[in-house]
């Protein structure tokens, strides 16, 4: 057992998968430059030493190298694409949305697209073009799986599963959870490190984790919001409100079973998300709950989300923008008050 950060756990997963299968390779900007940072958040740091021919530093040409990765996957390679900030996925959007997500379907199931795309997300003091939570833009796109690891243990196991999956998988990694060190460390980071077992493991998609058991209300949250929800749950516990916190870990596929079981028990549910409220993941979850679980609900489903604006720069506004622990505590209390 060793305690690893998310950045380190992802690096170990990549290393192990590259050793296991020589078709696996990494492609992206600044991912393996001696004297550099190993990608924007140190995930691939040093891997070029062991795999000089399989850590591919690209020009700043996102549309181009996403397509290159796709083409190579058609003849059996298994690329792990690194994009420095999730926001730049838009630069490669045709390749992702029209090609990567659709080629298998268009071929009548004859081609396989074993591609992993790793993208950092999170509102972190950089303004509107380096802060977006990208999940909603891809959640509505059939043909891509979406994974959101909040701990180092999950990051390693889920990335290994992603590499072995014969379909496109997008992994959203949170900038404040990486635990990147040295010059690439982030202010405001949260410790998301885990004890990582010596022996190999993978984690299947579509299996949520109940981070905290509770009986009065269910909170569904991923990435940074999971930590805020957990913290809120602890505060509420002291005030006599018992909160269950569910971390879905993958959005596509989604573990409805765990969520439904929880709601059947609590009858109340809140979804917390860092992205704007309109059209967010919470909207989809809430709609499905309304369709399928109405009889179990004793209070309206609530969403806690960012406002429908881009992310502002100023720390004062950023604090207002990102859902806080206090907001979660407050909202839960309101729900409990109106329904008991």
């Amino acid at each position: 057992m060793a305690r690893l950060t998310i950045a380190e756990a992802l690096r170990e997963a990549i290393r192990e998968e590259m050793r296991r299968d020589e078709n696996v390779y990494c492609i992206g900007e600044d991912i393996g430059i001696p004297g550099g940072w190993g990608g924007a958040f140190t995930v691939t740091l040093g891997l070029e030493k062991e795999f000089p021919d399989r850590i591919i530093n690209t020009p700043i040409s996102e549309a181009g190298f996403f397509g290159v990765a796709l083409g190579s996957s058609l003849i059996g390679l298994r690329p792990i694409i690194d994009v420095q900030y999730g926001d730049f996925l838009f630069c490669a959007m045709d390749q992702i949305a029209n090609q990567i997500a659709k080629l298998r379907y268009m071929s009548g199931g004859k081609v396989k697209i074993p591609i992993v795309i790793r993208a950092p997300v999170g509102v972190t003091g950089r303004g509107a073009q380096h802060s977006q939570m990208m999940e909603p833009f891809f959640h509505c796109l059939p043909g891509i799986k979406i994974v959101v690891p909040a701990t180092a243990y999950d990051a390693k196991g889920l990335l290994k599963t992603a590499v072995r999956d014969d379909n496109p998988v997008l992994i959203f990694e949170h900038k404040l959870l990486y635990g990147a060190k040295g010059v690439r460390s982030e202010s405001g980071s949260i410790d998301a490190s885990s004890e990582i077992p010596e022996e190999e493991y993978t984690i299947p998609f579509g299996k949520a984790v109940v981070r905290k058991q509770g009986k009065d209300i269910t909170i569904i949250a991923t990435l940074l919001m999971m930590y805020r929800a957990y913290e809120a749950a602890q505060i509420l516990e002291e005030q006599g409100i018992s909160v269950e916190v569910i971390d879905p870990r993958s959005l596509v596929p989604f573990d409805w079973e765990t969520v439904k079981k929880s709601i059947a028990k609590t009858g109340r549910v809140v979804i917390v998300e860092e992205s704007p409220r309109r059209g967010g993941i919470g909207a989809e979850i809430a709609a499905t709950i309304a369709e399928e679980m109405l009889d179990f609900l004793i209070a309206p489903v609530r969403r806690i989300a960012a406002p429908d604006t881009p992310a502002p720069f100023s720390p004062v506004m950023e604090k207002f923008y990102v859902p806080s622990t206090e907001r979660i505590v407050q909202t839960v209390k309101e729900i409990i008050n109106i329904s008991s």
């Binding site: 003091g125 950089r126 303004g127 509107a128 073009q129 380096h130 502002p312 720069f313 100023s314 004062v316 506004m317």
Partner: peptide
């Protein structure tokens, strides 16, 4: 110059 909305990069 951007009322705090932009920051360094914008």
């Amino acid at each position: 110059c951007c009322r705090g909305k932009g920051g360094s990069m914008h």
